[in-house]
């Protein structure tokens, strides 16, 4: 295994707190929710495994005893409960075999088949629109995906999975930003001064200090 300190990008002399912070920063970056329905999700998962293994190895070395357990939960570290975990079971409620087939095709990334199956069904309810949205999203067609997700939410306002997915597309503030970068939106305008105010107001980023106006 590569040097665990190198993976976490800290020196071997780092304190426990520094190691934990480095681990949490990396975990935030590669969090499964940042790669929801993303064609590179497998690469992010590999990174997570590496980081978890490195953190465990350091903990083990420092505590001098084997750590029990595994998976995503790390003592004192970051909890990886994906907010989307329960989502894929919801189609069972619908009981529509064709929608299950569509979801399986989407999971295999066979988007052509998934779309073909959907187009053959006559019922264009919430699930149909949601699955069309998923197909569009996988293709990178964000505008169309959002429109289908919006329709799905209108047709089935109580469905948590539809609402969460729509929020994910609409919430640009939710993505990862490296340390020091603001959570901005294109809608904030084109000058740094305006953007500082926008980031401050829209995103409630209390880290916006006076130094940022240095650029104005």
């Amino acid at each position: 295994m590569t040097d665990p300190y190198e993976i976490l990008n800290v020196p071997s002399t780092a304190t426990d707190e520094e190691v934990k912070k480095a681990y949490r920063d990396l975990a935030r970056k590669y969090h499964p929710d940042n790669y929801h329905d993303n064609p590179l999700a497998d690469l992010a998962q590999e990174k997570m495994k590496e980081i978890n293994a490195a953190y465990d190895a350091i903990q083990k070395e420092r505590s001098g005893r084997a750590r029990s357990g595994g998976g995503y939960a790390r003592s004192g570290g970051y909890q990886y409960q994906s907010q989307y975990q329960g989502g894929y079971q919801s189609q069972a409620r619908e009981g529509a075999a064709v929608f299950q087939q569509v979801r399986m095709a989407i999971n295999r990334n066979d988007l052509g088949l998934a779309e073909q199956l959907l187009r053959q069904t006559g019922e264009h309810g919430g699930e149909w629109n949601f699955l069309m949205g998923m197909i569009c999203y996988r293709r990178g067609w964000i505008d169309e995906a959002r429109r289908y997700y919006q329709t799905a939410c209108q047709l089935d306002p109580g469905n948590v999975e539809y609402r969460q997915t729509l929020n994910f597309v609409e919430n640009s503030a939710g993505g990862y930003r490296p340390e020091g970068y603001e959570t901005w939106s294109t809608g904030c305008g084109g000058s740094l001064c305006g953007r500082m105010a926008c980031a401050y107001l829209a995103c409630n980023m209390c880290t916006c200090g006076s130094m940022r106006f240095f650029y104005c």
């Binding site: 993303n38 590179l40 964000i142 505008d143 597309v169 640009s172 930003r177 939106s185 294109t186």
Partner: peptide, 12 residues
């Protein structure tokens, strides 16, 4: 929304 999300996917 569309532009922001494409940037988000570039970052990821």
């Amino acid at each position: 929304v569309s532009l922001d999300h494409s940037i988000r996917l570039m970052g990821a």
